[in-house]
């Protein structure tokens, strides 16, 4: 991962903590200097990825956010043990496969692609990981991200 140093946010989540996850993402993205309109887009994108992990993946996961080269990277991984398949509701199949994330999520991943500057998905024996990148855009005259809160 490019510049995957110390994350500015590292938080696990499950079905009951998505609200807390969204609040944390909004606060950290805002503090990192992402413009307010883009903060809302980032929160929406991270929520859709986390919702996929909850609904179509392991049922829980982990979010890491870090800053690198004028971009915010958000990595969502459903890297826990899979849920008991019997506990799944309706037709949703529990799977470790990103292909089923795509099918099960309806328009969720589509929305993420509309909002993020970049989205990548990968699947492996340890589950599915999704990374979205939000760039800060052209530097402003007095860029807030030159503050060193996260040194």
């Amino acid at each position: 991962m490019p510049g995957a140093g110390t994350p500015i946010l590292d938080q696990v989540f499950d079905r009951d903590s998505l609200y807390a996850l969204r609040s944390a993402v909004a606060a950290h993205a805002s503090q990192a200097g992402l413009p307010q309109g883009r903060v809302g887009d980032l929160v929406a994108a991270v929520h859709e990825l986390a919702a996929n992990a909850v609904r179509h993946g392991a049922g829980h996961g982990r979010l890491r956010v870090w800053k690198h080269d004028q971009s915010l990277y958000c990595l969502v991984a459903d890297d826990g043990p899979p849920q008991d398949a019997g506990a799944a509701g309706g037709t949703e199949q529990q799977s470790r496969d990103a292909a089923l994330w795509r099918i099960g999520s309806g328009r969720g991943l589509w929305l993420v692609r509309q909002l993020a500057d970049q989205l990548s998905l990968s699947s492996g024996p340890h589950g599915t990981t999704a990374t979205v990148i939000f760039t800060f855009g052209p530097p402003e005259p007095d860029p807030p991200f030159h503050l060193s809160q996260h040194s």
Binding site: A44, W110, L111
Partner: peptide, 9 residues
């Protein structure tokens, strides 16, 4: 303040 894709849809 927030609505996700599934509820919009």
């Amino acid at each position: 303040a927030f609505i996700d894709a599934s509820c919009v849809r």
